[in-house]
Structure formats: structure tokens, C-alpha cells
Design a protein around this nucleic acid. Structure first.
Ligand SMILES: Nc1ncnc2c1ncn2[C@@H]1O[C@H](COP(=O)(O)OP(=O)(O)OP(=O)(O)O)[C@@H](O)[C@H]1O
Length: 727
DNA sequence: CGCATCTTGTAATTT
DNA sequence: ACAAGATGCG
């Protein structure tokens, strides 16, 4: 068992603690994921058959990496481990057991958009306007019920508003319609197995026997349903190992509940707890900063974290004129870091709170010829033309899928409009069938225009044809024929605008993706391809070997590490985000997100904020985030952007930790910064030039001034960083 | 029914 | 700033 030498003492103990429940709660970079990986390898090595293990990770990518690592450690026999996200593992299980729940194994997985569409159509049927009752809000409400295992009946017991009332009604109908459409939403993939296990104890028993060892990574972000599932599956053999860090719980909005950490100890009172305290990832300075930040959270489990790594360099704050300048400064620092640390582009990540921020950053990187990849954003599979083609494929696999039906029945144009569709819906509803099946009933209906009926029948024949050839053609061939027959490629080509060419390319890319899927998977079917598409996360598609700077949200960065990290947009209202400011719990989650961001860093962390930013079309003047001030200033080195411009390469000379004085102190000692300013005083700014003080607010370190500059107008500045000279 | 133009809401994070 | 949805006309 030579590979155990890669682990420290406590890690080894956790790996070798084979039987019974155990939990590892430990800080960032302490090797939790490594323990889970080695534990899996260890179990296989000591003779546990791989198929008896189920390892639940947060992303499919993490699962892939872990699997590859394990294969390296103990060889190919580990192929049969079930390893993946809760969603993909239980979707797989459900395919085998669907019939018991009244579904068929070709059920469709509805993504969030599909769910929203379904809710719209239900509101429509109820005669409620989607203005007063937002489908997305109702969907979120229903999802949160489902995550907490609240059934439609139970949801009706606690109605506090009209919104609740409508949501309850929609929930009931939504559940019914999903089942009629042989479709499951993301939440169903978690709650349907629970329903299955509770209704059929023999099925539960089968899977308890099958999965004798259960391992869960990123446990702090599991929700009630996931926890319930762990409890059920582990109920017999109790060989369950969960690892997590409460300080990194960042998916509350998806039902994640830190309470699960406490419940685990309660529900498995004999559970062994291991604490990992050595961090192998970051510098001492980074860990101090992360710790200082998280100390501000009331709700947290105290944990120690230390490292043998060097102190490292201070954190650099970049003050930027606006979001373009932010991109530009980051680009400059990237170029500089590459040389200074002798690293590659792929060792660098730029993290941000919202996807919308990526644009200005991208522009700057492109201008500076820095290769980059974006994780997430406007996803390939969310583009209209792609969703349209996929809707055809979904309908072919599952003709009861009304949402897909509606999406494409008139795309491309077949002269089937709203009126025809409304009439068809009435018939489907009356005879309790799907829209697709309802087309057969048209003959019996008198007041249905012949022309419309004919068009619908043509559409049905088209789909039926593909349903029939599905069994003889490979998914790739079928898709190509289909795309050819509906003529969308030709249409895009003829239109020949830049957008339509992009669409043409996208559809081609989809066809290639299907082809590739067919060639890499022996038993590739349309069903399995569609499932894969529904359940891939943004991060799963990220190629970490590609030599490019990675741009992504802080959420997507969970579990990853980079030598140099930039966290952009460190501004009140953006990070922490506006919507979190009113709620203590939400604000603490924002802080945990910042903690996650900081702790991705191996060597050097940059923080940036902009003094001006366009936000939904308006120019706003953000303030530096409160989170910044939670890091002691001796860990920070700040650079006024005007200075960084002029002495670009000089500002980045060797700053040792012991030289803990940040720039601002240096200036202060030279007494160039006035500690007090009179309203009306004339001042000089390095970049903005001459101006007059309009307003002074805050005090001490947090003093802010509004200055009306002669050339550039009003600016809101931190006195501490503005480097103003009184005239 | 389909297209062009106007209006409105939107960007918080995601399986 | 921008995209999706609504409105209105041919
Ligand atoms: N015993 C060890 N010796 C050397 N390096 C280690 C050891 N354990 C873990 N590491 C390294 O430390 C880094 C962090 O490990 P890992 O990702 O497993 O931590 P983690 O606790 O899961 O982190 P996070 O909570 O931030 O996701 C990795 O680069 C890993 O290779």
C-alpha cells in the first residue's frame, strides 16, 4: 500500500478507518478531496469490489479527475465505481427503476428553462398573468419545497400570501404535468429515488446491498433531499464517509444546508470525526487573510489551519477607473506575473461574482493577446438554435414531452400559430393526452380547420418517421438527417448574416458533438446523449490543460486551485451583492464565497475594484467592498491605477512580508495624505487633476470624499487611496 | 400567420 | 446596454 505515503498521519487514519460512519470537517486546501480519492483507492486495494462503492462529488469533472487518479493508484479494476454528481448518479439509477414510479426509462430531464416554460403554460391555463406572478419566482419556490422534501399537499398547509397560494396550485399541477409528460426536473432526480426507496423497501434493500460504501465530497453543499438519500442508502451498512468545510458552503440558494453537518453527528452518533489542519495549498499570508475574513461570520465551526508554506507576498489591491480599466490592469498584471513567477497562462484565474462581469475582462484580455477560456456564461447548449435541435431529439425520444413539442411545432415555420396550438391544447387537456397524441384526435373534432389539422399531421408524420428510424440509425446519423430535412442549416447559410453564420457553426458543432459522443461511447443512444447534455455543468467542459487564463464565477471555482488568482469587482453591491445586504445569513454566505475565492490561491492574490461601472445601463460609483476591510491592511499592498500606469514595472519590485507596510502607509508617512479635509478645499489628484471637495463622509481609514474635478466631474474617492494633495 | 418595431425588464450564484 | 416579450400591421 505504498501510496499511503502521499498522505499525512491524520489523512492516513481517515483513509484506513474502513467501517462505520465518518466525517471529515476541515478547512480549505487541507486535502479533503485527496483523502476521499485515496480512501476509494484503499478500499479497492483491500478487496472491496469497485461496484460496491458510490462516490458523490459536486461536479462531474471532479469525479472524472478523481477516477483517473484512482486508476493510476490501483488500476483498471476501479472502473466500476459509481462516481459522479448526485444528479447524474441518481438519473442513472432512475433509468433502471423508472417503471416502478410510473415513468418509462426514456424520461426527459427538464432543465430550468423547460420548467419555467411549463410553469408559464400552467399560469396561462389558470388565467393568471405572468407579470403579477413571475414564473421564475414560482419555480424557485417549488424547487425550494422539493429540496426540502415538501410535497404539494404539505405545501398547502402553510400559505401566507397570494403568491404562496398560486405557487401551491402551480406546484400541484406542475407535478402532474411533469409526470404526464414523462419528464423529471433537476429536483426530481433527487427526490424520486427517495420516493422509490420509501415505497419499495425491497428496492432500497437492493441498493443498500449494492452500495456498501458511500463517500461524499463537498458535503457542506448538500441539501435535505441529498442528505435523506445518504441516510437511506447508508441505513444498513453505515459505511458512509462525508467530507466538507462549513466555511465553503455557497449553495444555499439551491437548498444547501450546513445543518446537514450537525445532523450527521446526530443521526450517526457513533460517527468518527477527523480534523485535517495542515494546508498544503496556500501561503501563510493567504491563509491569514482568509481566516481574518471568515472570523466575521457568526455561524461557523471553529477550525485550525496552518501551513509549512512560506509567508508569501502581500495581496495587491488594484484600484481601477472603470470596468475597462479593471480589465486592462488585470491584463498587465497577468503579463507581469507570467514573467515574474515563471508560470503559464493556465496557472491564472480571474474570478468574479456575476457572469455579466466577464465581458469587460474578456475585451481587455483580447486586446492584450492573452489566451483565455470562460467557464459558463451563455452556454452552448442554452443557445436557441441548439435548444431547437435538441427539442426535436427530445420529442423523438419522448413524444409526450409537451414543452419540446411547443418549442418546435412551428420551427421552422409550418403555419401552425398560436390559435392552432391553443385549440390543440384544449383537445389534449380534454382527452388527457399529450399534444403529440392529440393530433390523432383531430378528425373527431368538428370545428378544427382542415388546413391546420393537415399541417399538424404533417408535423406528426415527420416526428413519427424519426421515431421509427431511431432503432436503425446511429444518433449521429439520425441528427444529421433530421437537421438536413428540416432545412435549418440551409436557412442559416442563405441568410448569411454574421449571426446566422454563427448559428450555422453552432449547429455543426452540435452535430460533431453527437458524433464524438457516439464514437467514444459504445452504447451511445439518443437517450444517453440527451441526459449527458442536461447534466453537464459548465465546469465539466473546462479543459484545465489548455494553456489559457481561466475566467469564471467564484461559485464555479470551488475545489480548484491556481498559482495566481484575481478576484474582480470587489465592490459593495456587487460583492457582497445587493440582494444579500438585508439578510444576515445571505451576507454570511457572500463572505464564505469570498473565503472560497481567497483560498483558491497558491501564491499570489490580486483584488480589484472599479470607481465607476456601468450597471444595467446606468453609470454607478461603487464603493470598495466591506470584505476588503476585513483583511488587515498589513497584508495588503495597494496601487493607485494612475501610479501603476506610469511606473508600470517599478511598482512590482520584491515586497517581502516583513515589509508589511502597505503603500498607503508610506504615503501617509510622507504626510502627503491629509487626514482631514475641509469642504470646499481645492485638491490635486494624480490622474483626475484639480478639483474641489464637495462632501466628506466616514472617518479614520474609511474617510471618503466627493470631489468635483475640473476636467472629469464628480468622483467618490477613498481618502486613504486617493493620494490627494491640498492646494 | 409572420414580421417589424416598440416596450419592458433585467444581471446572483447552478445541477 | 441588451435581450426577450408585446404590440400592431400587412
Ligand atoms: N499530504 C499531502 N501532502 C502534500 N500535498 C497534499 C497533501 N494533501 C493534499 N495535498 C495537496 O493540497 C492541495 C489541496 O488538496 P485538496 O484539494 O484535496 O484539499 P481540499 O481540502 O479538498 O480543498 P478545498 O476544500 O479547498 O477544496 C492539493 O494540491 C493537494 O494535492
Amino acid at each position: 500500500m505504498s501510496f499511503l505515503k502521499d498522505l499525512n498521519e491524520v489523512q492516513q487514519q481517515a483513509v484506513k478507518y474502513v467501517n462505520g460512519p465518518l466525517m471529515i470537517v476541515a478547512g480549505a486546501g487541507s486535502g479533503k478531496t485527496r483523502v476521499l480519492t485515496y480512501r476509494t483507492a484503499y478500499l479497492i486495494q483491500i478487496g472491496v469490489p469497485a461496484y460496491q462503492l458510490i462516490v458523490l462529488t459536486f461536479t462531474n469533472k471532479a469525479a472524472d479527475e478523481m477516477k483517473n487518479r484512482i486508476i493510476k493508484l490501483v488500476g483498471d479494476k476501479s472502473q466500476n465505481v459509481w462516481m459522479g454528481t448526485f444528479h447524474s448518479m441518481f438519473a442513472r439509477l432512475l433509468r433502471n427503476e423508472a417503471e416502478k414510479l410510473g415513468y418509462t426509462s426514456n424520461f426527459t430531464i427538464y432543465d430550468t428553462d423547460d420548467s419555467n416554460d411549463l410553469i408559464k403554460s400552467i399560469l396561462n391555463k389558470f388565467g393568471k398573468s405572468i407579470q403579477s406572478f413571475k414564473p421564475a419566482a414560482i419555480r424557485a419556490k417549488i424547487s425550494s419545497w422539493k429540496n426540502r422534501l415538501v410535497t404539494p399537499e404539505q405545501s398547502a398547509r402553510n400559505i401566507k400570501s397570494t403568491f404562496d397560494e398560486i405557487s401551491v396550485d402551480v406546484y400541484r399541477e406542475y407535478t402532474k404535468r411533469l409526470k404526464e409528460s414523462n419528464a423529471m426536473d433537476f429536483d426530481d432526480l433527487l427526490i424520486k429515488p427517495i420516493e422509490l426507496f420509501k415505497t419499495f423497501p425491497s428496492v432500497l434493500d437492493k441498493y443498500q446491498e449494492r452500495f456498501k460504501f458511500i463517500l461524499v465530497d463537498e458535503y457542506q453543499d448538500t441539501n435535505k433531499a441529498q442528505y435523506e438519500m445518504i441516510k437511506l442508502l447508508a441505513g444498513k451498512y453505515r459505511n458512509v464517509c462525508v467530507v466538507g468545510d462549513d466555511a465553503q458552503s455557497i449553495y444555499r440558494f439551491r437548498g444547501a444546508d450546513i445543518q446537514n453537518i450537525l445532523s450527521f453527528e446526530k443521526d450517526f452518533p457513533d460517527c468518527k470525526i477527523f480534523r485535517l489542519e495542515q494546508n498544503y495549498r496556500s501561503t501563510k499570508l493567504i491563509l491569514s487573510a482568509a481566516d481574518q475574513v471568515i472570523q466575521n461570520n457568526k455561524h461557523r465551526i471553529d477550525k485550525k489551519l496552518w501551513t509549512e508554506n512560506p509567508v508569501g507576498e502581500p495581496i495587491t489591491l488594484l484600484t481601477c477607473e472603470n470596468e475597462m480599466d479593471e480589465g486592462e490592469q488585470i491584463a498587465q498584471k497577468i503579463k507581469h506575473s507570467i514573467k515574474k513567477y515563471k508560470i503559464d497562462f493556465k496557472d491564472i484565474a480571474i474570478l468574479y461574482r456575476t457572469n455579466a462581469q466577464s465581458r469587460s475582462l474578456e475585451d481587455a484580455l483580447r486586446r492584450n493577446s492573452i489566451p483565455y477560456v470562460i467557464v459558463g456564461g451563455v452556454e452552448f447548449y442554452k443557445r436557441k438554435e441548439i435548444k431547437d435541435v435538441l427539442a426535436y431529439l427530445k420529442l423523438i425520444v419522448n413524444p409526450k414531452d409537451d414543452i419540446s413539442f411547443k418549442r418546435i411545432v412551428n420551427y421552422p415555420s409550418r403555419g401552425i400559430g398560436d390559435v392552432t396550438l391553443k385549440n390543440l391544447e384544449k383537445i389534449a387537456s380534454k382527452y388527457n393526452t399529450s399534444l403529440f397524441e392529440a393530433i390523432d384526435l383531430l378528425e373527431q373534432v368538428i370545428d378544427f380547420s382542415d388546413k391546420s389539422a393537415e399541417r399538424l399531421r404533417n408535423f406528426k408524420n415527420l416526428i413519427t418517421k424519426y421515431i421509427q428510424i431511431k432503432s436503425v440509425l446511429k444518433p449521429s446519423e439520425l441528427s444529421r438527417n433530421l437537421v438536413e430535412e428540416i432545412g435549418i442549416l440551409k436557412e442559416f447559410k442563405e441568410e448569411s448574416t454574421p449571426e446566422s453564420i454563427a448559428r450555422w457553426e453552432n449547429v455543426q458543432e452540435l452535430l460533431s458533438a453527437i458524433m464524438e459522443y457516439c464514437s467514444t461511447n459504445e452504447d451511445a443512444s439518443l437517450e444517453s446523449f440527451l441526459q449527458e447534455v442536461s447534466l453537464v455543468a459548465d465546469i465539466d467542459k473546462w479543459d484545465s490543460t489548455h494553456n489559457a487564463v481561466t475566467l469564471m464565477t467564484l461559485h464555479s471555482a470551488k475545489g480548484l486551485e491556481f498559482k495566481v488568482v484575481f478576484i474582480a469587482g470587489l465592490e459593495e453591491g456587487l460583492f457582497p451583492i445587493n440582494q444579500s445586504l438585508m439578510d444576515e445569513a445571505e451576507l454570511e454566505e457572500e463572505r464564505r464565497l469570498f473565503y472560497v475565492g481567497i483560498t483558491r490561491t497558491i501564491k499570489k492574490l490580486f483584488l480589484s475594484y472599479a470607481l465607476k461601472r456601468y450597471y444595467m445601463g446606468d453609470l454607478i460609483y461603487p464603493q470598495l467592498s466591506r470584505f476588503f476591510y476585513e483583511i488587515k491592511s498589513n497584508l495588503i499592498e495597494s496601487e493607485e491605477y494612475s501610479i501603476s500606469r506610469k511606473v508600470k514595472n517599478k511598482t512590482f519590485t520584491n515586497h517581502e512580508f516583513k515589509v508589511s507596510k502597505s503603500k498607503f502607509y508610506e504615503y501617509e508617512n510622507e504626510s502627503q495624505i491629509p487626514s482631514y479635509l475641509d469642504i470646499g478645499a481645492y485638491v490635486l489628484h494624480n490622474y483626475f487633476g484639480k478639483g474641489r471637495v464637495i462632501e466628506v463622509s466616514g472617518n479614520g481609514e474609511n474617510t471618503r470624499v466627493v470631489v468635483d474635478f475640473e476636467n472629469v466631474g464628480r468622483k467618490n474617492l477613498m481618502l486613504k487611496y486617493a493620494n490627494l494633495k491640498v492646494l
